[in-house]
Design a protein around this nucleic acid. Structure first.
Length: 437
RNA sequence: GGGCUCGUGGUGUAGAGGCCUAACACGCCUCCCUGUCACGGAGGAGAUCGCCGGUUCAAAUCCGGUCGGGCCCGCCA
């Protein structure tokens, strides 16, 4: 019977077998240490028998072993337990030297990221790399738990679409059986809104595709979008929901994934129960005053401002997260709702965290006639277009006031761990220059 | 798409006109080593310095082109 390396402690005194990958060898002559990796971690195996050591001759890191032996409490061993009197059975021999060393930290310098990603299939076996994605898995778990606890139903919407959903961001186009053009979803926006009419509250964690030719540390052509849409909600309630979500996620992580977080020296983010909110105009003003770069005419925040205001909020408001409110009509999407007393201001807030925008939330225009007008006036959209028609029909069939947000899972992971590039928080990143591995 | 920047053994780097017959660390191979955990020690293999052209007596090093990256901006999550 195979046991896991983490369970060795409870089997001291019994003969057991472990199975896993050779992670590291240290041959000291009459004594050999090998670290074997399984899904629960590493275990040190001690071999004194020359014939057993010989079984490893010519075999590289990555070789898969079944090791029988006796677990022994040993303070000198990492983890306090090790396997003695080991007999080895090579289950899968590996003879080729790995192109990338996996037993020590991999380089994450910008200039060498290309190598890091080229060798991902093996490089991810590095425990420090693994830690990033164990953290990401815990983030996903925490988010799902939060959504469930708040009555959201998980949905799966199509990524293959007949036409652009939102306009704005560039979409990937492809031939669909020579009959028509298909596009890849850049957002589940319309579908999650339609589903508000069904479930009232929904969420989806799924890939979205952006054909923007951007080459930055925060963009990819495919990323995982965490989308939520809630009916019968106000913008303030949506803000509170997002804040609660961030808190729940952070608390869960520092409870469940502390060893992984430590590997990256991640610091638990500080932000109050109620995340502070600033208007865009206020941020422009503060930034302009502090840097003498005039941004007061900008319709959006510049990347420099996002960075700066996060620093400012950390120093002055004790918060590493901040909401940005009062977005101008210019640049708004046609499905956004505008303030009843000021049609020039969208009911939208962005969530900034550690220097970047991680989420955009807004109220949607649920009144059919207004929505129709906005589609035509703001986006020049044709209501008969197959990309809009189903959406409009759902909106006409009785839609409550609603709103929601989209959040980049990789960006959140990146920022929580303190990584420099979103791609480092992506198993197999896709960008303008990369489609493989 | 624009600006800036980088490209040297498998990996990470040093070298910035001649000392380069290209150096160092890790990895790999051989040998020694009974408590390693970035093990230690001795020896060895492995790169015509992204590619093409030019300048020069001489180019990894300077210039031009080209290919492939990175960072920032625009756009966005």
């Amino acid at each position: 019977m195979r046991i896991l390396s983490k369970d060795l402690t409870s089997h001291v005194g019994q003969k057991v077998a472990i199975e896993g990958w050779v992670h590291k060898k240290r041959l000291l002559g009459g004594l050999t240490f090998i670290n074997v990796r399984d899904r629960s971690g590493l275990v040190q195996v001690v071999i004194k028998d020359k014939d057993e050591v010989e079984k490893l001759r010519g075999l590289q890191i990555g070789t898969i072993l079944r090791v029988q032996g006796n677990p022994v409490d040993e303070p000198r061993a990492p983890g306090g337990v090790e396997l003695h009197d080991a007999t080895l059975e090579v289950l899968v021999p590996v003879t080729d030297e790995p192109a990338i060393e996996i037993d020590k930290p991999l380089s994450h310098k910008p200039d060498t990221l290309d190598t890091l990603f080229d060798y991902r299939p093996v490089g991810l076996r590095n425990l420090r790399e693994q830690a990033i994605f164990q953290v990401q898995a815990e983030i996903g778990y925490a988010l799902r738990q939060y959504f469930r606890n708040n009555g959201l139903t998980e949905v799966h919407t199509p990524k293959l679409l007949a036409a652009a959903t939102e306009g704005g961001a560039e979409v990937f186009k492809m031939d669909y059986f020579g009959k028509q053009e298909a596009t890849l979803a850049q957002s589940p926006q319309f579908y999650k809104q339609m589903l508000v009419g069904v479930f009232e509250r929904v969420f989806e964690i799924a890939p979205v595709y952006r054909a923007e030719p951007s080459a930055t540390t925060r963009h990819m052509t495919e990323y995982t979008s965490v989308d939520a849409e809630l009916g019968f909600i106000t913008l303030q309630e949506l803000e509170d929901f997002l804040g609660g979500m961030l808190h729940a996620t952070v608390d869960h992580l520092w409870q469940q994934a502390e060893p992984q977080l430590k590997q990256w020296e991640a610091k638990k983010p500080v932000f109050p129960a109620k995340i502070p909110s600033l208007t865009m105009a206020d941020i422009h003003q503060k930034f302009t005053a502090a840097t003498s770069t005039d941004t007061t005419q900008e319709k959006d925040l510049t990347p420099a401002e996002e960075k700066w205001i996060c620093e400012w909020a950390k120093d002055n408001l004790d918060s590493e997260a901040v909401f940005v409110s009062e977005w101008p009509r210019v640049g708004a999407k046609f499905y956004h709702k505008f303030k009843d007393d000021d049609q020039e201001v969208a009911e939208r807030v962005d969530l900034l965290f550690r220097g970047v925008e991680i989420a955009t939330a807004s109220l949607r225009e649920h009144r059919y006639e207004r929505l129709l007008a906005q589609l035509q006036d703001m986006a020049g959209g044709d209501p008969e277009n197959p990309g809009f028609k189903p959406f409009l029909s759902a909106m006409k069939a009785g839609m409550p006031p609603h709103g929601g947000f989209g959040l980049g899972l990789e960006r959140l992971t990146q920022k929580l761990l303190g990584l420099n590039n979103v791609k480092e928080a992506t198993l197999f990143p896709r960008d303008i220059n990369r489609l493989a591995p």
